[in-house]
Amino acid sequence: MKEFFLKISNNEIYQRLFKNPFSYVAGATLLAFFNVLTFVFTGNGWGVTGAFANWAVWTLQPLGLDVSTWPSFASEAAQKTLAGGFLSDGVSVRNLGIILGALLATLLASQFKIKKIKSVRQVVAATVGGLMMGYGARLASGCNIGALFTGTANLSVSGWVFAATLLLGAYIGSKILKKYLM
């Protein structure tokens, strides 16, 4: 049995189908196609970070967090999403799908490996970077997907402005990376 699967894994056609990386151009084409499909099926293009604040609320509510007075959660739709929970929220389920889809791709390619944290530096980078992304995404109403990819494709100038600020941010980030995190 083991050898049978190994044989499949090493098969040339299998590797072409499930292992060898796609080109960036192929990736871009497929992502665009599925973003349009997302628009067709859900009435809105692809977005990711909109659900993250809800994830925090669902985790912290049992610990006493009360967001009922926060203006951002005041709308009926926001209340309904919060009351429904993780598994009733389409965006949350889709994000979970991204994690599982990537896991499936790595397993099919036999390339899964737990990549352990190597240094304190990585923990600091992940903490600071994560916080900045989370805060920034709320201010900008989205991330590279919602505010940039889907935003610009919606013919919104905000997407283009976001792209310009990202370029500036990435420049500053690269300097910080070179100086402190290498």
């Binding site: 992304m133 109403s141 310009a164």
Partner: peptide, 14 residues
């Protein structure tokens, strides 16, 4: 402000 913050954060966090 959000865009610049996000840009810095994504580079640092990889």
């Amino acid at each position: 402000v959000g865009g610049v913050m996000f840009g810095i954060g994504m580079v640092i966090a990889g």
